[in-house]
């Protein structure tokens, strides 16, 4: 009996590996550790802010509305920085098996 369930187990693993069965849902993440998470969160916030400021700057140069769009996109950039950090800890839920 034991031998048989062992065989079933290995068969299931092999089938999953070859893509014949749906693999269990689940999404890996970056290696944990306080330094890794801290640095990654910092980079995420700063990069969102940089992109926001860049967008505002370019749009202002183009439309001649300095400094209003810059200010708006500064706020939006900080908001998406917070969103990035939120995503870092709560990745988008993905209904894998559909």
């Amino acid at each position: 009996m034991n031998e048989r369930s062992d065989f079933e187990d290995r068969l299931r693993q092999a089938r999953t590996r070859q893509g014949l069965d749906k693999r269990p849902a689940g999404r890996g993440s970056l290696p944990p550790g306080p330094w890794g998470i801290g640095l990654r969160a910092g980079v995420e916030v700063v990069s969102a802010l940089v992109v926001g400021i860049g967008f505002g700057f370019v749009l202002d140069r183009w439309l001649g509305t300095w400094p209003w769009l810059f200010l708006v996109f500064f706020v939006l950039g900080s908001a998406s920085g917070v969103l990035n950090v939120y995503r870092l800890f709560n990745p988008r839920k993905t209904p894998r098996a559909n």
């Binding site: 990069s47 998406s80 990035n84």
Partner: peptide
Amino acid sequence: IISYFSRVVS
């Protein structure tokens, strides 16, 4: 959209 573009920078 900003969050999407910030991937490049980060």
